[in-house]
Structures are given as C-alpha cells and as structure tokens.
C-alpha cells in the first residue's frame, strides 16, 4: 500500500523527520506512537501534501505511484485520506456541497461517472449513521459550530463517504470522551477491509483498545525507533517513553 523510505522533512529550516522508514500493506492497521514533538503530526502533514514542509530526502511509494510528486488533491484522489487533528471550520460552505464536490472530482479523476443527487443523498444517509452523525449536521457549514466530538465524527463520516485506500488518523482520539471515542472507533472498524489500510497516530494507548493495531511503531526524534505487536502499546502506556530513550542509549 505505502512504502516510506528514509524520509527526511523540514520546516523553516528545522529538520523534523530524519530518515523515517515504514511499510504498510493492504488489510493492516498500524499505530504510530511517540512523545510530543517526535514528528507524528509532521508525518501526517507530509503524507497529505502540506506545502510548508520541505522534503529533503527519501521516497514514498503509494500503490506504485510516487506520492511526493502529487499535489494534495491528487493524493486524495489516489485514495489517501487524512483525518485532521484540528478539522478546519469553513463558514458558508455546506458539508453536503463540499462532499459532493469532493466525491465528483475524485470520480472524474478516476474516469468514473458523477454520482447522481439521489444516490449521493442515500449515501449521506447511510454513512452518517455509521458515526451517529445527526443528518442535520450534514447540511450545516463544514465544521462550523461543531463540538470537538462532532468534528471528529465528521472526519470519519467524510472518510466513509470517500472510501480511501489508506486512512491516516492524526490524533483522532484527542479531546474525545469515551462515548465519542467508541463511536469514532466503531466507524473506523466498520470501514476496515482487506483492500484498505489504516495508520493511527496517537499519543495515548486508549484508542488502541478500540482500534486494534496489527503493528505498533514508536516514533522518536524523527525516526521509527521501535516496532512491535499490539502489546507494545500497553508497555508504552505503562512505562512511558523514557525507557525507549534509555534503550537508545540517551540519558534521560
């Protein structure tokens, strides 16, 4: 699905990613954990194509395509989806209008027919149920006046509508109470198949009780420094990140 090799990225001349390697295959769920400032959100932004970041070395292969050569919108059209840590409020642009535009531009890119208004509305109805998103919210302006939980559910709703091959969830659990967390995780799990893959970026292990990863990676100082099975997340939760630093031979 995606193969990241020796990825180096910097912003304002400061190097954040320092040779990151990661491979995710179809059907897999990978969790990326790490302390604050390790580069977790930078990784998400770089993969989504945020232009402020400069890629200084490395490559990202996404289903045979050089991801780094694509514009932000073309990455989305190729099937990459980023669930934002801080979804943006866009006054005046309705969720519905926004999603229909997105869906049709993606379809056009793939040489598919535009979705009919009727089929689109049926899809909205079905997918909004998945994350228990009030259908009224679908008619409101994108994220405007949404609570924190509603914004995150709206991200997963968009993911359900766009059916990406690879979803990257950037701190989707932050600011969620346990009920909202369950709903969001339930949505993600329902969308899982052997054709797609998920990268869950999180600081805390809590989310991984609900979205169970196949692999857990520790991102520290711009690199993946440790990988393991799902039990690694529990160990990190219990012991914190200091032992990793110690293992790396750094003084804490």
């Amino acid at each position: 699905m995606i193969k990241i090799e020796n990825l180096h990225a910097s912003i304002d001349g400061k190097e954040i990613l320092k040779g990151l390697n990661l491979e995710v295959k179809a059907g897999e769920v990978h969790a990326i954990m790490g302390p604050n400032g390790a580069g977790k959100s930078t990784l998400a932004s770089v993969l989504a194509g945020r232009e402020e970041y400069e890629i200084t070395a490395g490559s990202v292969d996404f289903n045979g395509t050089d991801l780094l050569e694509l514009s932000t919108e073309d990455r989305a059209r190729e099937g990459l989806f980023l669930a934002f840590q801080y979804p943006v409020e866009i006054p005046g642009v309705s969720n519905i209008n926004f999603l229909r535009t997105a869906l049709n531009e993606i379809r056009e890119y793939r040489g598919e027919e535009a979705v009919s208004a009727k089929d689109f509305m049926a899809m909205v109805k079905e997918k909004s149920k998945l994350v228990e998103l009030d259908s009224k919210l679908a008619n409101r302006s994108v994220n405007e006046g949404f609570s924190g939980g509603e914004k995150k559910r709206n991200e997963i709703f968009q993911m359900a509508m766009l059916e990406p091959k690879l979803a990257i969830l950037d701190e989707t659990d932050s600011g969620l109470d346990i009920d909202a967390l369950r709903i969001v995780a339930g949505g993600v799990n329902a969308l899982k198949s052997d054709q797609n893959a998920t990268i869950v970026i999180t600081h805390y292990q809590r989310l991984l009780d609900y979205i169970v990863p196949d692999f857990v990676h520790v991102l520290y100082n711009g690199k993946i420094v440790k990988s393991g099975p799902k039990e690694l997340a529990l160990e990190l939760e219990e012991k914190g990140y200091d032992w990793i630093k110690a293992e790396l031979g750094e003084t804490v």
Binding site: A76, V88, A102, L162
Partner: peptide
C-alpha cells in the same frame, strides 16, 4: 488546504 485534502 482542508478542501484540497479531500480531493478538491
């Protein structure tokens, strides 16, 4: 950017 990240 947010809109572009959805394929627009």
């Amino acid at each position: 950017y947010y809109l572009r990240a959805r394929g627009i």
